[in-house]
Design a binder for these strands. Structure first.
Lengths: 184, 184
DNA sequence: GGAATATTGAACTATTCAGTTCTGTATCGG
DNA sequence: CCGATACAGAACTGAATAGTTCAATATTCC
């Protein structure tokens, strides 16, 4: 049978993700990834084809984790879910600020095509979930159009987390935005 | 008197800016900057202290150019200006997509402190200009709060320009958003 | 022509990077 | 103990990186 593996693929992804999250793809070195995961370079290359492969795997892992939170599927559907999405979607746990997926958009030029696909698919899914929640509230405007708007606002809040303006600023903005949404 | 300079600082900035804009700081090499500006490495280092210095200078140059467009100062102040800001603020000229300033936020971790300062100050200025335009329309909600919201939406639209969703998507979103704003 | 300045290009340092390979060792099941 | 697998660590390749320095050349005014 041989010696069992001392690390799981998931553990590696969980530890590598924050590094990519903070530094992006270009500015993350294999040294940093070794240090963060505790796995030797040889080990990393036995599990992943190359740095790009590891990055995309992290991205997928992140998005799966976000899906599991189910912020937009709690019953009953409605503004409450949208508010939870805007409030708790962009994280702020130590080094991990905003949204890994939104951050990645900036680097599409050098990222593998898969990265673009993964992000685009996830956004399409979010758009649908948002639209469903909005539709439940029977607004006068087109739910799909509102959903697009919400997603853009979300992206903005995420990217602004890189500023040192503090979390308070974005919660205030979100509160204002939600008040507006509920009036539609 | 000696030989006159064959390039001006401004020319260099104008040509270097799109490179940083597209590739960011980390993924832009001096080779690319030489090629884009047509100026030798020695020349670049005679004009700028290092790569970071050149980057910050580009950022400033970009923001000055945006200021000169005066999208938010046209009289009379009002929603028209806000709409112009959202519509024509995020550029789409060839390689230059979205907003250089918003793009830079992603790299604050590795950028010099100046970069953060420059961007933060510009955002504060934008926020004020937006608020002034909004106030002119006498909405029921607090103009400053609305301005914050607009700025976040703007950031989102900019960052989403990295997707291949096309320009049509963002003009539609902006139209929706403007309709909402005018109802406040 | 001559003094002064600008520009180029290349050589050079020293570092970092991704990626590969190999060796020794550790750990399992049988 | 044995065969099989897994791991750590280091050595290594080959390329790219930022940044410096210098010599050769070009262009201007006087």
């Amino acid at each position: 049978m041989g010696r069992p593996k001392s690390f799981s693929r998931e553990e590696v992804l969980e530890k590598a993700m924050p590094v990519f999250w903070k530094h992006g793809f270009s500015d993350t070195s294999l040294q940093e990834l070794e240090r963060a995961t505790g796995v030797n370079k040889s080990g990393l290359y036995s599990e992943f084809r190359d740095k790009q492969d590891l990055f995309v795997a992290c991205l997928r892992h992140y998005l799966e984790g976000q899906e599991k939170r189910g912020l937009l599927t709690k019953e009953p559907l409605g503004w409450k879910n949208v508010e939870a999405f805007l409030k708790h979607g962009p994280l702020n746990k130590g080094e991990q600020k905003g949204c890994f997926s939104v951050n990645s958009m900036r680097e599409f030029a050098i990222l593998p095509h898969q990265a673009h696909t993964v992000v685009a698919e996830n956004r399409a899914r979010l758009q649908q979930l948002l639209a469903r929640n909005i539709e439940a509230e029977k607004p006068r405007m087109d739910p799909s159009a509102i959903a697009d708007m919400v997603l853009s606002f979300f992206s903005g809040v995420c990217i602004e987390r890189n500023l040192k303006s503090g979390k308070g600023a974005s919660t205030r903005k979100t509160a204002t935005f939600m008040k507006v949404l509920r009036s539609l």
